[in-house]
Amino acid sequence: MKLELLINQKIYALDVAPDEMLADTLRSKGFLSIRKGCDTSCCGLCTVWIDGKPVLSCTMLSFRVAGKAITTIEGIQPEAEKFARILAAEGSEQCGFCSPGFIMTVIAMKNELKNPTEQDIQHYLAGNLCRCTGYMGQMRAIKTYLRGEVQ
C-alpha cells in the first residue's frame, strides 16, 4: 500500500506491505540504527519515537504511523551524542548494540518525566535489556545526564 511517512522531519513516499513492521521499513530506508534483538517485543533495541513517545518499531505496523512523526536516533544526533559521551565515560555503551534503543528511551524519559527518582528511571527503562553492562553504569550515566552535566 502506498503511504507517506514523516521520518526525522522528512516525508518519504513509500510502498509498504500491510504486514510490514516499522523496523523493517526504517532499515530498508537506511536507518540502520534500528536493530531487532528478540523477535518477541521485549528487548527494546528497536525503540523509536512516534509523536515523541517511545514505541517498539518491530511491533508497530508501518501503515499505522502514517500521519505521525517518526523519530529515529539518526534524527536526534546532537542530543544522542551528548548522552552517548556521558555513557561512554562510564564505559556503559559496551558492545553498543542495544544503545540506540536505550538512548531513545532515555531521552524520551527526560522529555516526559520531571525530576524522576531512581525507581522512576528503572520503571521507565524496564523494557530496555542489556546483557553487557549490568545496568549500574547506565544508571550513573543517566543521573549525570539529567543533572545536565556535559562531558
Binding site: 540502520l32 540504527s33 536493530r35 544522542a80 552517548a84 559521551r85 555513557l87 564505559g91 555503551e93 553498543g96
Partner: peptide
C-alpha cells in the same frame, strides 16, 4: 585512566558498523 572507548560514541549513536549493516 578511565579512557572512554575509542568507538563508544559511534556505536552508541547507531552508526552502521555491525555485520548486517555492511
Amino acid at each position: 585512566r578511565s579512557v572512554s572507548k575509542i568507538d563508544g560514541v559511534a556505536i552508541a549513536t547507531g552508526k552502521p558498523l555491525y555485520t548486517e549493516d555492511l
